[in-house]
């Protein structure tokens, strides 16, 4: 029954797609897109475009996590640092990351470093700001308990702030996927974003659609993995 429930809406959508697409050039039928998908992505493109994209995403996301959590803990623990940094942080967070791409290109060139930097520049803010909030929200009674029993702060801070840190990481993941694609649409020669734009320019419409489907599947898969990790890390928080 659960399987039927989970599949009902996707099947319905594919059905609607089938009906609507009838012969349109710009909207190929699901069958044609599926054929193009198999042909395009079950090939060496996995090595030349998909994996490099995912590797850059992983690098940027990890780096953003380390910077965001590290700075977030420091800012969260120090009220002086917080007062100084908070207005600036709000400003940086408000800048839409894609507009930084041309700027980052000037500093970091057009190779992997630029793409990773773009991903970091977008992912770091939700992680940083959520970490600051999480660290600030540490329970006073628990903090007092640590002081009294000589329990070092590191036992408290990260675990106590982990619900907020995970919320930040979840937001950052979807931002990261968006920026992974966008960074490859500028001055690039490989990657998923690059390939999709290439197909579009070459009027390989079914192939272009298959790339979009692949991105959707990657996003879906990553969020599944994230949810599994979160379930383990925050078991105590969700009281499972």
């Amino acid at each position: 029954m659960r399987v039927v429930n989970a599949l009902a809406v996707p099947l319905l959508l594919v059905g609607v797609w089938w009906l609507v697409s009838g012969g349109s050039f710009y909207l190929p039928s699901p069958g044609r897109v599926a054929a193009a998908f198999a042909e395009t992505w079950f090939s060496e493109r996995v090595l030349t475009d998909v994996l490099p994209s995912l590797a850059r995403l992983a690098a940027g996301y990890t780096l953003a996590g380390v910077i965001g959590v590290g700075l977030g803990v420091a800012i969260g623990l120090s009220s002086g640092l917080r007062a100084a940094a908070e207005p600036v942080l709000e400003f940086f967070r408000a800048v839409p990351p894609p507009v930084l791409v041309p700027l980052i290109m000037l500093f970091a060139g057009i190779d992997n470093a630029m793409k990773v930097a773009v991903i970091v520049s977008g992912c770091v803010w939700p992680i940083l700001l959520n970490t600051v909030e999480g660290v600030r929200a540490i329970d006073e009674v628990l903090a007092d308990t640590c002081k009294l029993y000589g329990v070092r702060l590191r036992h408290l801070v990260l675990r106590s702030a982990s619900p907020q840190i995970m919320a930040g990481l979840r937001q950052a993941l979807s931002i990261g996927i968006i920026l992974m694609v966008i960074s490859e649409m500028f001055a690039s020669s490989s990657g998923l974003g690059f390939t999709i734009v290439l197909f579009q320019r070459g009027f390989q419409i079914a192939e272009m659609w298959s790339g979009i489907v692949l991105l959707g599947l990657i996003g879906w898969g990553l969020s599944l993995v994230f949810r599994m990790v979160e379930k383990r890390v925050l078991a105590w928080y969700h009281r499972a």
């Binding site: 009674v141 009294l148 408290l156 982990s162």
Partner: peptide, 16 residues
């Protein structure tokens, strides 16, 4: 050599 028990038992234990 001093220990404290607080009123807020729920908040003085490490939930994780």
């Amino acid at each position: 050599h001093t220990a404290v028990v607080f009123q807020e038992y729920g908040r003085s234990l490490f939930p994780w």
